[in-house]
Design a binder for these strands. Structure first.
Lengths: 237, 237
DNA sequence: TGGCAGGAGATTGTATACGATGTTTTGCAC
DNA sequence: GTGCAAAACATCGTATACAATCTCCTGCCA
């Protein structure tokens, strides 16, 4: 891969050790929705699960809390993040703010190789959509996010790339919580449209499409405040 | 403070304990340039300095490494980050990408109270600029960044706010490394211009001013690759 | 029976201990 | 005196230990 996408190697070389693997494993589980929002992640359990001490488990959970995927409450423990509707709005607001810009930068640096790569991603995504089963569903979710992440990668700005990783991951949580449609990643065709617009050098249109795409995802959410109502309201009616 | 700036309370309630304070203290020291890029921050030293165990020191350093202010090298230790010219470019590229959007959102929600607040910040900044001494210099650097952070705060998006905090902090490092002009925060008047444009509801102009402002800061940098040249080139001439 | 006080258990917060990995210095050979 | 090897030192990586805090159950009393 000698495309502009070489920035792919932007792995966190900044991290120290095995906590990294645990963090990645848990993050993947969260993004693929094997772990539901609110699930408790006790340090001991995580440690046992990965056969490491609480020290490492704790470090991993801390790291995840920086990314907003896990919320640790003092003296109570860590939980898979349960984004509030307000948080959800902010996440998508951030994406609307940032993704057109990323798209523009990506378009400026994109190579034919990158386009091929993106198209392949799309194909894979489509294939998964037609498949049945949990595994396919999870892979599809991931693939859907990968489209946006790949654009960030192509843009060549590793800082924005990391930021987008956070946003995509948190979006996954939000969709898991508030998504309504059964189709987990609705706007598949929209991804294709965006690529086409880029290829056609119609940058403004590509940005518009991206904004619409994000709006579509958001439109599928039901962000009404679910005030738990577990007390009495739940049985009032 | 009943302004839109109430989001100020967006403190990392997600963090656990005392590592937080250490992290903040070190970050402040870095941003105010009491700690220079490349300075070694060994876990023991940090621990001793703050009278805590290496455990906490380590946690703090880890946190800082997530923000890109510290780079930890496996088995070697942690150092105040020494951003490469390429990193510097990416940081400012990210700011150009993000700040106009933040500005727009902030303008949409801004209250008279917020404007007062911003103007006060400006006044303070101006006062510090005319003062002498290290302390004033440090405070000035901080005040300069606070303008941008306050805008992010006003925008009401805590995610973007956090991101801007990271960008501003890292910018400070970049300026410390590559800045040329003695005036640490040149574009003071530009901040005022931006506020005026917002007040006048000239949003596009405000964005333009913001972009120019960032460009000015960048223009003061000398981002030529300093390849250490400590070997022979240093004495060749 | 309902509510509160007390304590047992579980979980996190922090410190310390030990092994692993680099780095520097020492000392010997040439 | 120079160069390399080996050991001493410093520092990090991880595990374990202990203290603090919270949760939940139990039992007493009104």
């Amino acid at each position: 891969m000698k495309s502009a996408a070489k920035a792919q190697q932007a792995e966190d070389s900044t991290t120290d050790t095995g906590a990294q693997q645990i963090r990645d494993a848990i993050r993947e589980a969260i993004v693929e929705r094997r772990l539901s929002p609110g699930t408790k992640l006790s340090e001991s359990d995580v440690g046992n699960l990965f056969n490491v001490s609480r020290t490492l488990a704790r470090a991993a959970l801390q790291a995840l809390s920086y990314e907003g995927l896990v919320s640790v409450e003092k003296n109570r423990g860590a939980f898979v993040a349960y984004p509030s509707p307000e948080e959800a709005r902010q996440i998508f607001s951030a994406r609307r703010l940032v993704e057109p810009g990323i798209l523009r930068e990506a378009a400026a640096r994109i190579t034919p190789d990158d386009i091929t790569h993106l198209r392949q991603l799309l194909l894979e995504e489509g294939r998964l959509m037609s498949e049945r089963g949990q595994t396919a569903r999870r892979a599809e979710i991931k693939a859907s996010g990968d489209f946006h992440l790949t654009l960030a990668m192509i843009s060549g700005n590793s800082i924005m790339q990391r930021f987008m990783e956070e946003l995509v991951a948190r979006s996954s949580l939000v969709i898991a919580l508030y998504g309504q449609s059964t189709a987990s990643s609705c706007g598949h065709s929209e991804h294709g449209d965006i690529i086409s617009a880029i290829e056609a050098d119609e940058l403004d249109r590509a940005c518009q499409l991206m904004l619409h795409h994000i709006a579509h995802i958001e439109a599928d959410l039901d962000l009404r405040e679910r005030k738990s109502l577990g007390l009495k309201e739940a049985f009032e009616l």
